[in-house]
Design a protein around this nucleic acid. Structure first.
Lengths: 147, 147
DNA sequence: TTCCGTGCAAATCTTTTGCACGGTC
DNA sequence: GACCGTGCAAAAGATTTGCACGGAA
């Protein structure tokens, strides 16, 4: 299992797909590499502008880059039922899904082997050649609920 | 198990929640009662305008009505990863999820007991008081795939 | 009579596109 | 040198809001 040169791995795959390199995309990749969960395009733009965490990237570029990364399979969209679409890097080693607090908007990852097994089993018996699946649990997080 | 007076049931619940009746909402309810799967706001607007299936309802009203129905729990949003959000009536007797063909946009319902069991099981062990869950399988439908 | 439901038009907000410039190959 | 990647500004498209009127309670 490789360590964490995900950005490098991503650049390599992009190159293989015939894309030239670029500073904006590099900055987005480096940001995504260190995220634990999905971000919106706006959050990505802000994170890059604020922190010395790289360089600013225009919003249009963020969207173009995310779209490109999604097509190459490096990033996946996450629909949380909130206003904006979220994006996160795809990790072969750690497939997960999402918990969304409908009160405060908090998004957390989770994974469950039994669930994946059920999905795999089911996918074989359905009138669709399943390539991906997305699961979102909605509810109230502990902060919003109690306390 | 009741027959199908869903529209009546819905009107009753809305009344109980303190809402007055209205022709536009009635038309939307009657349309939703007979749908087998989720529709977008635009599809609902078009369906009501074209068919003698009731009466035309302005787009703003369609959105307002759907939002209201969702809050009362009569309708649920379905995020299919397509541009627009979809809505469908909630049915106590037939909980289901969705298959989405990424080629042609076809949306089909499916249900699976093992999957529901896995979700229920898992919901108990997660840092969120789960109230709802949404599952979407993406892939290619038989028409788009083979011929 | 008092409000709520509805239509219409304008506003908002996310995401996309057109165009020009600068960097990569 | 040819093209792609990027920024900026404008466009597009979905959804929301403001306002005024007509119907429900």
């Amino acid at each position: 299992m490789k360590c964490e040169p995900w950005t490098e791995h991503a650049e390599a795959r992009l190159a293989a797909a015939g894309h030239k390199r670029g500073g904006a995309r590099r900055a987005v990749l480096e940001l995504l590499e260190h995220q634990s969960c999905a971000l919106t395009a706006l959050e990505i733009e802000d994170a890059l502008r604020v922190a010395g965490a790289g360089r600013s990237v225009s919003r249009a570029s963020v969207y173009r880059i995310l779209d490109q990364l999604e097509q190459v399979g490096l990033v996946q969209r996450v629909e949380t039922g909130q206003a904006m679409v979220r994006y996160e890097r795809v990790s072969e080693h750690h497939h997960h899904h999402h918990l969304v607090c409908d009160e405060c908007g908090l998004v957390m990852p989770f994974s469950d082997a039994a669930l994946e097994r059920a999905i795999d089993e089911l996918s074989a018996h359905v009138p669709l050649q399943v390539s991906e699946h997305e699961i979102v649990l909605h509810g109230a997080c502990s902060d919003c609920r109690g306390e």
